Amino acid sequence: MPLPAEFDLISRHFRPLAGPGALELRDDAAVLQPPPGRDLVLTADAMVGGVHFLPDDPPDLVARKLLRVNLSDLAAKGAVPLAYLLTVSAPRDTADTWFAGFASGLAEDQATYRVTLLGGDTTSTPGPLSLSLTIIGHVAPGTAVHRFGASAGDEIWVTGTIGDGALGLAVATGRLSDFSGYLLERYRLPRPRVGLAIAGVASAGMDISDGLVQDLGHICRASDLAAEIDADSVPRSAPARAAGEPWLATCLTGGDDYELLLAVPPARSTALRVAAQDAGIAVTRIGRLMNGPAEVTVRRSDGREMALTRRGWSHF
């Protein structure tokens, strides 16, 4: 079915998602009033068909992943989600049912995470399908967590389990079997750790999108520190452990985790545990930061350094 006229498409699929300030998507811009006394936090991510999702991925899950990877960036700042802008560039032969499914996925997660659509743009493209989302959140003034700010002696913590997303992609592409379906679900549907109160607890942090080792390297460079992690302490789900030792390096470097990676002073580790318990989110200490060249060393529990042929995902 040919792509519907732009305004008809917006009216049927996206106007029901619009919230305060969106002007019912009838204008070229939105008008947003931030909560009183709060700093705005803005972040954007793009997803391209064949790169960040597979052609046969259900459209509702594609939409929810797009929203959730952006929510994960807000979670890494300690921010509360507010609203988002969306750009969709789709081939002209994209079925209207795809847009319906995509919009239904957004609606489901809007209700879960209490965000609404402000506006955006729709265009046609010869392909592939390309999606971009800019999300807006808010924090108390001066409390946003950054990549920089860590100190030597800080502990390295992660939320959840690491490696499920990368292994889920391996399942989706036929390189790994997982009859539980857990890994594929984790690849298609990340779990942003919104609600974990890290402001005033973490000295630095970010979410893990390009691989644990590579993203930790970003914190090292931003804070001018070295890092050392214990590969055997990195939390892995039961299906990830069942994949076996040959997949450990993929878990550490594959990306698509969208868990939080945090530098926490030892004196605040109890505060982190309490915040995690309050939010119902598991946290695990996996290493430490120290003075030295801005690089990451991965060791096994017996002290042996683990050789890695790659450090993470590259966007270019």
Rank of each mutant, 00 (worst) to 15 (best):
M1V: 01
P4L: 09
A5H: 05
L9A: 02
A18K: 07
G19C: 01
G19A: 04
G21C: 03
G21R: 03
L23N: 01
L23G: 10
E24H: 03
D28F: 02
G37A: 09
A44W: 12
M47D: 07
G50E: 07
V51S: 09
H52G: 03
F53K: 00
D56R: 06
D57V: 14
D60R: 01
L61D: 12
A63C: 08
K65C: 06
L66R: 02
R68L: 00
L71C: 11
S72N: 11
D73W: 15
D73P: 05
L74E: 03
A75M: 05
A76D: 02
A76M: 02
L82H: 09
L85F: 14
T87G: 15
T87F: 14
T87L: 15
S89T: 09
T94Q: 14
T94N: 15
T94S: 13
A95M: 13
A95W: 13
D96G: 15
T97R: 15
T97A: 15
T97K: 14
W98A: 11
F99E: 08
G101E: 12
A103W: 07
G105E: 01
L106F: 04
E108H: 12
T112E: 07
T112V: 07
R114Y: 14
G119M: 08
T122Y: 15
T122D: 13
T125S: 10
T125W: 09
P128N: 06
P128V: 08
L129C: 03
L131M: 00
L133V: 12
I135A: 08
V139A: 11
G142A: 00
A144G: 06
V145K: 15
R147L: 12
S151V: 06
A152Y: 01
A152F: 03
D154H: 08
T159Q: 00
I162E: 10
G163V: 07
A170G: 11
G174H: 00
G174F: 07
S177L: 13
F179K: 14
F179I: 14
S180K: 09
S180I: 03
L183H: 02
L184R: 04
Y187H: 11
R191F: 14
P192N: 05
G195P: 05
L196A: 14
I198R: 06
V201C: 02
A204T: 11
A204F: 09
V213Y: 01
L216C: 01
I219N: 11
R221I: 01
A222W: 01
S223E: 04
A226V: 03
E228M: 03
I229M: 11
A231D: 02
A231P: 04
S233P: 12
R236T: 07
A243Y: 04
E245W: 12
T250C: 12
G254A: 03
D257L: 09
E259I: 02
A263C: 07
P266I: 02
P266F: 14
R268P: 00
A271M: 07
V274D: 13
T284M: 08
T284C: 10
I286S: 12
R288W: 09
L289S: 10
M290W: 12
M290P: 11
P293L: 15
P293F: 14
V296Q: 00
V298F: 12
R300E: 13
E305L: 08
E305K: 06
A307D: 11
G312L: 13
